[in-house]
Computed example of a mutant assay.
Amino acid sequence: MKRGLKEKLQWVNGQDDTTPLAQIGDITLNKSSLHSLTANKLPDNNARYVDCLAIDAGIYINRPPEGEFDIRDGKKIFVESTINVQKLVADIENHTIARSSKIDKSLSIARIIAYLDHDMIFLPLNAGLHWYLAALDAPKREVQILNSAPGVGPTDELDHALEAITAWFQQAEERIKQLPNPTKWPDFNVATWDQKTIKGLPTQKDGSSCGLYLIKYIMLWTRSKLSKTFSKKDIDMYRRQLAHDILNSDRNLLRKNQQPDQTKAIPDDEVSTKKIRRSRTSTSSRTTQ
Protein backbone atom coordinates (compact mmCIF):
# COMPACT_ATOMS: atom_id res chain seq x y z
CA MET A 1 0.00 0.00 0.00
CA LYS A 2 1.42 3.39 -0.99
CA ARG A 3 2.41 5.62 1.91
CA GLY A 4 -0.05 8.42 1.04
CA LEU A 5 -2.97 6.02 0.92
CA LYS A 6 -1.93 4.27 4.13
CA GLU A 7 -1.63 7.59 5.96
CA LYS A 8 -5.05 8.68 4.74
CA LEU A 9 -6.69 5.52 6.06
CA GLN A 10 -4.89 5.83 9.38
CA TRP A 11 -6.05 9.45 9.62
CA VAL A 12 -9.70 8.42 9.12
CA ASN A 13 -9.45 5.62 11.67
CA GLY A 14 -8.01 8.07 14.21
CA GLN A 15 -10.97 10.49 14.03
CA ASP A 16 -13.94 10.49 16.39
CA ASP A 17 -17.26 9.11 15.20
CA THR A 18 -19.10 12.41 14.80
CA THR A 19 -16.62 14.69 13.02
CA PRO A 20 -17.58 15.30 9.35
CA LEU A 21 -14.66 14.14 7.21
CA ALA A 22 -16.07 14.76 3.73
CA GLN A 23 -18.89 16.79 2.22
CA ILE A 24 -19.72 15.65 -1.31
CA GLY A 25 -22.69 17.67 -2.53
CA ASP A 26 -25.43 17.06 0.03
CA ILE A 27 -23.66 13.96 1.36
CA THR A 28 -21.84 14.24 4.69
CA LEU A 29 -19.53 11.38 5.61
CA ASN A 30 -17.96 10.72 8.99
CA LYS A 31 -15.79 7.90 10.29
CA SER A 32 -18.69 5.45 10.53
CA SER A 33 -19.65 6.04 6.88
CA LEU A 34 -16.09 5.27 5.78
CA HIS A 35 -15.32 2.54 8.32
CA SER A 36 -16.02 -0.36 5.95
CA LEU A 37 -13.47 1.12 3.53
CA THR A 38 -10.70 2.08 5.93
CA ALA A 39 -10.66 -0.35 8.86
CA ASN A 40 -8.16 -3.21 8.81
CA LYS A 41 -9.00 -6.91 8.82
CA LEU A 42 -12.76 -6.63 9.20
CA PRO A 43 -14.67 -9.94 9.18
CA ASP A 44 -16.85 -10.75 6.16
CA ASN A 45 -20.07 -9.49 7.71
CA ASN A 46 -22.10 -6.28 7.99
CA ALA A 47 -19.03 -4.38 9.21
CA ARG A 48 -17.60 -4.59 5.66
CA TYR A 49 -20.89 -3.63 4.02
CA VAL A 50 -20.54 -0.32 2.11
CA ASP A 51 -23.41 1.98 3.09
CA CYS A 52 -25.50 4.20 0.84
CA LEU A 53 -23.66 7.41 1.78
CA ALA A 54 -20.28 6.04 0.68
CA ILE A 55 -21.84 4.63 -2.49
CA ASP A 56 -23.51 7.94 -3.35
CA ALA A 57 -20.25 9.80 -2.70
CA GLY A 58 -18.48 7.34 -5.02
CA ILE A 59 -21.13 7.96 -7.68
CA TYR A 60 -20.96 11.74 -7.26
CA ILE A 61 -17.18 12.12 -7.56
CA ASN A 62 -17.25 10.16 -10.83
CA ARG A 63 -19.96 12.29 -12.46
CA PRO A 64 -18.91 14.59 -15.31
CA PRO A 65 -18.67 18.33 -14.62
CA GLU A 66 -21.92 20.28 -14.67
CA GLY A 67 -23.07 20.94 -18.23
CA GLU A 68 -21.26 17.90 -19.62
CA PHE A 69 -22.58 14.41 -20.35
CA ASP A 70 -21.31 10.94 -19.52
CA ILE A 71 -21.26 9.44 -23.03
CA ARG A 72 -20.54 5.76 -23.64
CA ASP A 73 -21.01 3.85 -26.87
CA GLY A 74 -22.51 7.05 -28.27
CA LYS A 75 -25.24 7.14 -25.62
CA LYS A 76 -25.78 9.62 -22.79
CA ILE A 77 -25.80 8.11 -19.29
CA PHE A 78 -27.65 9.42 -16.21
CA VAL A 79 -26.63 7.83 -12.90
CA GLU A 80 -29.20 8.10 -10.11
CA SER A 81 -28.26 8.22 -6.44
CA THR A 82 -29.22 5.45 -4.04
CA ILE A 83 -31.28 7.95 -2.04
CA ASN A 84 -33.39 8.98 -5.03
CA VAL A 85 -33.90 5.35 -6.06
CA GLN A 86 -34.99 4.45 -2.52
CA LYS A 87 -37.49 7.31 -2.72
CA LEU A 88 -38.87 5.92 -5.97
CA VAL A 89 -39.34 2.52 -4.36
CA ALA A 90 -41.00 4.11 -1.30
CA ASP A 91 -43.35 6.12 -3.54
CA ILE A 92 -44.95 2.85 -4.63
CA GLU A 93 -44.70 0.94 -1.34
CA ASN A 94 -46.22 3.83 0.63
CA HIS A 95 -48.61 5.06 -2.09
CA THR A 96 -47.26 8.60 -1.79
CA ILE A 97 -47.24 9.85 -5.40
CA ALA A 98 -50.84 11.04 -5.38
CA ARG A 99 -50.35 12.59 -1.91
CA SER A 100 -47.07 14.38 -2.68
CA SER A 101 -46.75 18.02 -1.71
CA LYS A 102 -46.47 20.58 -4.50
CA ILE A 103 -42.76 20.97 -3.81
CA ASP A 104 -42.07 17.22 -3.82
CA LYS A 105 -44.17 16.79 -6.93
CA SER A 106 -42.37 19.61 -8.74
CA LEU A 107 -38.92 18.24 -7.81
CA SER A 108 -39.83 14.69 -8.84
CA ILE A 109 -41.26 15.80 -12.18
CA ALA A 110 -38.20 17.94 -12.92
CA ARG A 111 -35.94 14.97 -12.22
CA ILE A 112 -38.00 12.63 -14.40
CA ILE A 113 -37.94 15.12 -17.27
CA ALA A 114 -34.14 15.29 -16.93
CA TYR A 115 -34.09 11.58 -17.78
CA LEU A 116 -35.32 12.45 -21.27
CA ASP A 117 -32.03 14.17 -22.13
CA HIS A 118 -30.33 10.79 -21.72
CA ASP A 119 -30.43 7.39 -23.39
CA MET A 120 -29.69 5.27 -20.33
CA ILE A 121 -30.64 5.64 -16.67
CA PHE A 122 -28.59 3.74 -14.07
CA LEU A 123 -30.51 2.78 -10.93
CA PRO A 124 -28.50 1.50 -7.92
CA LEU A 125 -30.90 -0.82 -6.11
CA ASN A 126 -30.86 -2.60 -2.78
CA ALA A 127 -32.42 -5.97 -2.02
CA GLY A 128 -32.14 -6.30 1.75
CA LEU A 129 -28.39 -6.00 2.25
CA HIS A 130 -27.45 -6.56 -1.38
CA TRP A 131 -26.67 -3.85 -3.96
CA TYR A 132 -27.06 -4.33 -7.70
CA LEU A 133 -27.53 -2.16 -10.79
CA ALA A 134 -30.49 -1.79 -13.14
CA ALA A 135 -29.64 0.07 -16.37
CA LEU A 136 -32.62 1.41 -18.31
CA ASP A 137 -31.78 1.43 -22.03
CA ALA A 138 -34.47 3.63 -23.59
CA PRO A 139 -33.66 3.02 -27.29
CA LYS A 140 -33.89 -0.74 -26.69
CA ARG A 141 -36.86 -0.55 -24.27
CA GLU A 142 -34.77 -2.79 -22.04
CA VAL A 143 -33.88 -2.99 -18.35
CA GLN A 144 -30.43 -4.53 -17.96
CA ILE A 145 -29.68 -6.10 -14.58
CA LEU A 146 -26.04 -6.23 -13.43
CA ASN A 147 -25.74 -8.33 -10.30
CA SER A 148 -22.54 -9.40 -8.55
CA ALA A 149 -24.40 -12.18 -6.69
CA PRO A 150 -26.91 -13.61 -9.21
CA GLY A 151 -28.54 -15.78 -6.56
CA VAL A 152 -29.60 -12.70 -4.55
CA GLY A 153 -32.25 -10.30 -5.87
CA PRO A 154 -33.82 -8.62 -7.64
CA THR A 155 -36.98 -8.64 -5.56
CA ASP A 156 -39.91 -6.21 -5.45
CA GLU A 157 -37.69 -3.11 -5.29
CA LEU A 158 -36.90 -3.22 -9.02
CA ASP A 159 -40.54 -3.50 -10.08
CA HIS A 160 -41.49 -0.75 -7.63
CA ALA A 161 -38.81 1.61 -8.96
CA LEU A 162 -39.98 1.02 -12.53
CA GLU A 163 -43.62 1.51 -11.54
CA ALA A 164 -42.71 4.79 -9.82
CA ILE A 165 -40.83 6.11 -12.86
CA THR A 166 -43.80 5.21 -15.05
CA ALA A 167 -46.18 6.96 -12.65
CA TRP A 168 -44.04 10.10 -12.49
CA PHE A 169 -43.89 10.23 -16.27
CA GLN A 170 -47.68 10.20 -16.23
CA GLN A 171 -47.64 13.08 -13.75
CA ALA A 172 -45.25 14.94 -16.05
CA GLU A 173 -47.33 14.43 -19.21
CA GLU A 174 -48.32 18.09 -19.67
CA ARG A 175 -44.78 19.32 -19.00
CA ILE A 176 -43.38 16.85 -21.53
CA LYS A 177 -45.76 18.14 -24.21
CA GLN A 178 -44.33 21.62 -23.69
CA LEU A 179 -40.70 20.59 -24.20
CA PRO A 180 -39.08 22.45 -27.13
CA ASN A 181 -37.51 19.30 -28.57
CA PRO A 182 -39.23 15.93 -28.91
CA THR A 183 -37.77 13.11 -26.85
CA LYS A 184 -36.10 10.10 -28.44
CA TRP A 185 -37.63 7.77 -25.88
CA PRO A 186 -40.01 5.33 -27.59
CA ASP A 187 -42.41 5.38 -24.63
CA PHE A 188 -42.49 6.13 -20.91
CA ASN A 189 -44.03 2.91 -19.62
CA VAL A 190 -40.72 1.55 -18.31
CA ALA A 191 -42.55 -0.93 -16.09
CA THR A 192 -43.38 -2.92 -19.25
CA TRP A 193 -39.89 -2.90 -20.78
CA ASP A 194 -38.07 -6.20 -21.21
CA GLN A 195 -35.79 -7.19 -18.35
CA LYS A 196 -32.45 -8.81 -19.17
CA THR A 197 -29.96 -10.21 -16.67
CA ILE A 198 -26.42 -9.61 -17.93
CA LYS A 199 -24.30 -12.76 -17.88
CA GLY A 200 -20.53 -13.19 -17.59
CA LEU A 201 -19.86 -10.28 -15.22
CA PRO A 202 -17.22 -10.35 -12.46
CA THR A 203 -19.01 -11.66 -9.36
CA GLN A 204 -18.24 -11.36 -5.67
CA LYS A 205 -16.73 -14.20 -3.66
CA ASP A 206 -17.79 -12.84 -0.29
CA GLY A 207 -20.95 -11.53 1.33
CA SER A 208 -20.03 -7.87 1.77
CA SER A 209 -18.49 -6.37 -1.40
CA CYS A 210 -21.66 -5.83 -3.43
CA GLY A 211 -21.53 -2.03 -3.05
CA LEU A 212 -18.04 -1.93 -4.57
CA TYR A 213 -19.09 -4.12 -7.48
CA LEU A 214 -22.09 -1.82 -7.97
CA ILE A 215 -19.85 1.25 -8.31
CA LYS A 216 -17.53 -0.59 -10.69
CA TYR A 217 -20.50 -1.62 -12.85
CA ILE A 218 -21.70 2.00 -12.89
CA MET A 219 -18.25 3.24 -13.90
CA LEU A 220 -17.59 0.62 -16.58
CA TRP A 221 -20.89 -0.49 -18.15
CA THR A 222 -21.11 0.70 -21.77
CA ARG A 223 -24.59 -0.59 -22.70
CA SER A 224 -23.45 -3.99 -23.97
CA LYS A 225 -20.28 -4.81 -22.01
CA LEU A 226 -17.84 -3.59 -19.38
CA SER A 227 -15.19 -1.27 -20.82
CA LYS A 228 -12.67 -3.07 -18.64
CA THR A 229 -12.91 -6.25 -16.61
CA PHE A 230 -11.77 -6.51 -12.99
CA SER A 231 -10.95 -9.17 -10.41
CA LYS A 232 -11.56 -9.78 -6.71
CA LYS A 233 -8.06 -8.42 -6.07
CA ASP A 234 -9.03 -5.21 -7.88
CA ILE A 235 -12.13 -4.93 -5.68
CA ASP A 236 -10.08 -5.44 -2.51
CA MET A 237 -7.76 -2.64 -3.62
CA TYR A 238 -10.66 -0.42 -4.63
CA ARG A 239 -12.19 -0.75 -1.16
CA ARG A 240 -9.23 1.22 0.18
CA GLN A 241 -8.89 3.46 -2.86
CA LEU A 242 -12.52 4.63 -2.72
CA ALA A 243 -12.04 6.22 0.70
CA HIS A 244 -8.93 7.98 -0.58
CA ASP A 245 -10.73 9.21 -3.72
CA ILE A 246 -13.67 10.59 -1.71
CA LEU A 247 -11.43 12.46 0.73
CA ASN A 248 -9.09 13.79 -1.98
CA SER A 249 -11.81 14.69 -4.49
CA ASP A 250 -12.02 18.28 -5.69
CA ARG A 251 -15.73 17.92 -4.86
CA ASN A 252 -15.03 17.33 -1.18
CA LEU A 253 -16.05 20.71 0.20
CA LEU A 254 -14.34 20.05 3.52
CA ARG A 255 -11.03 19.68 1.74
CA LYS A 256 -11.55 22.80 -0.36
CA ASN A 257 -12.55 24.93 2.60
CA GLN A 258 -9.73 24.02 4.98
CA GLN A 259 -8.46 26.98 6.98
CA PRO A 260 -4.71 27.59 7.37
CA ASP A 261 -4.68 26.07 10.86
CA GLN A 262 -6.39 22.94 9.50
CA THR A 263 -3.88 22.14 6.76
CA LYS A 264 -2.77 19.04 8.63
CA ALA A 265 -6.31 17.72 8.99
CA ILE A 266 -5.90 15.69 5.82
CA PRO A 267 -2.32 14.48 5.36
CA ASP A 268 -0.43 15.37 2.20
CA ASP A 269 -0.71 12.67 -0.43
CA GLU A 270 1.99 11.64 -2.84
CA VAL A 271 -0.60 10.34 -5.30
CA SER A 272 -2.79 13.05 -6.80
CA THR A 273 -6.21 12.26 -8.19
CA LYS A 274 -4.91 13.16 -11.66
CA LYS A 275 -2.10 10.63 -11.37
CA ILE A 276 -4.53 7.97 -10.24
CA ARG A 277 -6.84 8.67 -13.18
CA ARG A 278 -3.86 8.71 -15.58
CA SER A 279 -2.77 5.34 -14.23
CA ARG A 280 -6.25 3.90 -14.69
CA THR A 281 -6.39 5.20 -18.27
CA SER A 282 -3.00 3.73 -19.04
CA THR A 283 -3.99 0.38 -17.55
CA SER A 284 -7.23 0.40 -19.51
CA SER A 285 -5.32 1.11 -22.76
CA ARG A 286 -2.94 -1.78 -22.11
CA THR A 287 -5.85 -4.10 -21.35
CA THR A 288 -7.67 -3.34 -24.57
CA GLN A 289 -4.64 -3.58 -26.85
Rank of each mutant, 00 (worst) to 15 (best):
L9R: 14
L9W: 07
Q10K: 15
N13F: 06
G14S: 12
G14T: 05
D17E: 15
T18Q: 08
T18S: 10
I24Q: 04
G25I: 15
L29M: 08
N30T: 11
K31Q: 13
K31P: 01
S32K: 12
S32H: 08
L37M: 06
A39Q: 12
K41E: 13
L42G: 05
P43Q: 02
N46V: 14
R48T: 12
V50D: 00
D51T: 08
A54G: 04
G58E: 02
G58K: 01
I59P: 01
I59A: 03
Y60C: 04
Y60A: 14
I61Y: 00
N62A: 12
P64F: 07
P64A: 13
P64Q: 13
P64E: 09
P65E: 12
P65D: 12
E66P: 09
D73E: 14
G74K: 09
G74D: 06
I77H: 00
V79C: 09
K87Y: 07
N94K: 15
N94E: 15
I97T: 05
A98R: 07
A98N: 08
I103K: 15
D104Q: 08
L107V: 09
L107S: 09
S108H: 03
I109G: 10
I112Y: 02
H118W: 04
H118A: 06
F122E: 03
P124D: 01
N126H: 06
Y132V: 03
L133C: 06
A134I: 00
A138R: 04
K140G: 03
R141T: 06
R141D: 03
R141I: 02
R141M: 10
E142M: 07
V143H: 05
V143Q: 05
Q144P: 01
Q144Y: 01
L146W: 06
N147H: 12
S148Y: 04
S148N: 08
A149F: 11
G151K: 10
V152H: 12
P154M: 06
H160Q: 11
L162V: 07
E163S: 09
E163G: 03
I165D: 00
W168T: 01
F169G: 00
F169D: 00
F169E: 00
E173Y: 11
R175E: 15
K177M: 11
Q178R: 12
P182Q: 07
T192K: 14
W193I: 01
D194Q: 14
K199W: 04
K199P: 02
L201E: 13
P202K: 11
P202R: 11
G207T: 12
S209D: 11
C210G: 01
G211D: 01
L212H: 07
M219T: 10
M219V: 09
L220P: 02
W221I: 00
W221M: 00
W221R: 00
K232I: 10
K233P: 04
D236A: 12
Y238N: 04
R239L: 08
R239Q: 09
I246L: 07
L247S: 05
N248I: 03
N252S: 08
L253D: 14
L254W: 05
R255K: 11
R255F: 04
K256L: 14
N257M: 10
N257P: 03
N257I: 04
Q258S: 07
A265T: 11
E270Q: 10
T273W: 08
K275N: 13
R278A: 14
R280F: 10
T283Q: 10
S284R: 13
R286F: 08
T287V: 08
T287Y: 11
T288S: 14
T288L: 14
Q289A: 10
